[in-house]
Write a protein that binds this DNA or RNA. Structure first.
Lengths: 160, 160
DNA sequence: AGCTAATAGTTTAATATAGAATAGCTTAAA
DNA sequence: TTTAAGCTATTCTATATTAAACTATTAGCT
């Protein structure tokens, strides 16, 4: 098996924390995705609908920054949402480079119906640790998330 | 924008912690993936090489459980690793359903060269919080990760 | 022995994803 | 005004990802 890692106490701690962090994120994401399945929406589709729902219409570039996805990816996912009749694209007349994506009536109805259930799932996942611990976790993750990167906002961020 | 969320203090805390947790995980994963880029390996390819390197040859089913990916996915990624000459497939003679995946000489050399650098990146990401905090984070994430799920091991897990 | 269950892996279809190349549009500079 | 530079979105390529259908193989039961 070759060279196993022999680091300082601090390095080992860092590594273990990393592993548990990733496991928690993967694990929760997996369960939430499963909860989303009956809706026939993928995670990214949901994120986009949710962002438009809470922050209003915006162009694809901004949308990509919000949901942390590449512009090419946004094009595809918005394509699919458009095919499903959940969003609409309107090219700006003042600056024809921009395309504003907005929810259709159907899209609005869909997300407004799904969102509360999704919130419930999230709270359900997290509430096994108490308020102090939630605050602690939030603060530690905030530090780690910002490390060498102050750009790109996050999804649900401004909505509450 | 319609109904914003109005929940209890506890629910709000849960939600905020969730958002920060996901942001941290995404953010770190993104930076690590970028660090991996010069090697021309994807995250999943790296995970598979790393698992084989530290835990030894194993069949695809087990491999999938370790890296938390579907069996169809494993087939594809192992295909690509095989094309690159990094892993080898051998069908078991005792039970011809099983295929044992192992590292080639080239695969062993590759992962043993990359792995220390990758470890360094991880430690570098995490070490901005101190030992106590790392321990706290680890414990909280352990609880969240296990919530309603005791299966599937994790990658680096058994290696140190 | 022969039928049935289960199990490992592959294939397929649909979606996701990043990144690079490209096309169209706008603005600023020459 | 024409050109250059920069920006937005799309396209293309390659890989990832899951779920479901399918194949091959084995194990268990009668």
């Amino acid at each position: 098996m070759g060279t196993h890692y022999r680091g300082s106490r601090h390095e080992i701690n860092a590594l273990n924390a990393y592993i548990k962090l990733m496991r928690a994120a993967n694990s929760i994401t997996g369960r939430l995705a499963k909860g989303l399945k009956p809706t026939n929406l993928t995670m990214t589709q949901f994120s986009i609908l949710e962002t438009l729902y809470h922050l209003g219409p915006m162009n694809q570039r901004t949308l990509g920054a919000k949901v942390l996805k590449s512009s090419g990816n946004i094009t595809l996912v918005v394509d699919n949402l458009e095919k499903s009749g959940l969003v609409r694209r309107v090219r700006s007349r003042s600056d024809r480079r921009f395309i504003t994506v907005s929810l259709t009536k159907k899209g609005k109805e869909t997300i407004s119906e799904i969102f509360p259930d999704y919130l419930f799932l999230i709270v359900n996942e997290m509430e096994i640790i108490d308020d102090n611990e939630l605050k602690t976790l939030e603060n530690l993750c905030k530090i780690l998330g910002l490390h060498k990167r102050e750009d790109d906002k996050l999804i649900l961020e401004k909505s509450y």
